[in-house]
Nucleic acid binder design. Structure first.
Lengths: 219, 219
DNA sequence: GTCTATAGCAAGATAGAC
DNA sequence: GTCTATCTTGCTATAGAC
């Protein structure tokens, strides 16, 4: 590993440790630099802002989630079980960072911020997440209105963002309320998806698909 | 009006003006204090942080929305039309503050912040908003599963939070994409609400009601 | 290209005098 | 209640070592 890579990694590792120990606000750039044994200027040489330091963290959670979720999908073909596994897996991965994550997702809510899940900068991470949801759908035995099938992964990703939002606000021990949200909403979503095939349900289903398609356009 | 009330009001009024003129970030406490003709220390005597200054603004938008929405409900009994009117009305009220509102709602996404719509501090504002949605439901001629009827206002409020979140990220001219979201999702919601009465749909409807009820508990 | 040291600015927040 | 002075911290700038 190149020297620069080592330094970069050292800084981000130190930052993540201090963030989780003391929270984002109470961790100063001076402290990160001192603890990592580099100068403040050097830290800024690698990361143009304190917020930027968090982007590495963001990517790391997403990466871990992908890695941990894929194997779970190997052995399971039920739609509900697959969706449940992927969502709970995220909660497991993110758990240690809940305290810090709070501060983190506050930044992410800023549409101006490169950390926003809707921003161009994070479109790679977003696409990966939507891709994971596509695997959830495609690898399952669920029967769907084919029109809905195309859009469902994006819808599920939106749902996951909702879970994340809930989790950020979740103060229950072990964030068990977030787990409950997943446990109870997954069967619901599954039932609704199944209903999508009924003729009577078609117009609603079409409207949903159209709406998502329309909103996905950036005009 | 007591002297202290006058000073307090002077500070918040000045702050709101500067916020809307120049944005939240570019408005410094020093500038607010100078413009209001008081010292920085005095501003902090009344408002413990810059963020606190925004709470008054938050309440003001909610108040204006309530005031503007109520008359619209007088003359209309269709559920869809009522819901649409209330949601579009919010977009109208909030429009002038879109630029500033962005920064504002970033702060509001912080669960630690008293500005969070889920925090205890803003529970009065939240209750008022849910109350407005209850009027939308109760004053309409919509036929509903009675179980759902109780929970629907809370659900609609959640939906409105979703609209707000979308609006914050909306960069289209006149935030017309947000308007489109309302125009297209209202009929959808209406159709789903109507479906709730079908026997086949009952289990789903019950699950939704149960879930909301469970999540509303703060255990 | 990588890094240190240091000085300094801007702005949010606070302390303590009056 | 109000002020002035001061502190803190994110961030920048510069000058130079290797």
């Amino acid at each position: 590993m190149a020297k620069s890579e080592e330094t970069r990694s050292l800084i981000v590792t130190t930052a993540m440790r201090l963030f989780t120990e003391n929270g984002y606000d109470r961790t100063t750039m001076r402290a990160i630099a001192a603890e990592a044994g580099v100068s403040v200027g050097n830290a800024y040489y690698y990361f143009s802002s304190k917020e930027q330091l968090v982007q590495g963290f963001y990517d790391e959670i997403a990466r871990q989630h992908q890695a941990a979720a894929r194997p779970l999908l190997e052995s399971e073909t039920g739609f509900a079980a697959r969706l449940r596994a992927v969502l709970l897996c995220w909660l497991d991965i993110a758990e240690p960072y809940h305290r810090f994550g709070t501060q983190f997702f506050v930044n992410a809510a800023d549409p101006e911020s490169p950390l926003s899940p809707f921003s161009d900068d994070s479109s790679a991470a977003r696409k990966a997440s939507i891709g994971l949801m596509r695997e959830v759908v495609n690898g399952s035995d669920v029967k769907l209105d084919p029109e809905l099938r195309d859009q469902l992964p994006e819808l599920l990703w939106l749902g996951q963002m909702g879970v994340v939002l809930f989790w950020v606000h979740d103060r229950s021990p072990g964030t068990k309320r977030s787990r409950m949200l997943v446990e109870r909403s997954v069967p619901l979503i599954t039932r609704l998806a199944a209903l999508s095939r009924l003729r009577m349900f078609r117009p609603v289903s079409r409207e949903v698909v159209d709406l998502i398609r329309e909103l996905a356009k950036r005009d």
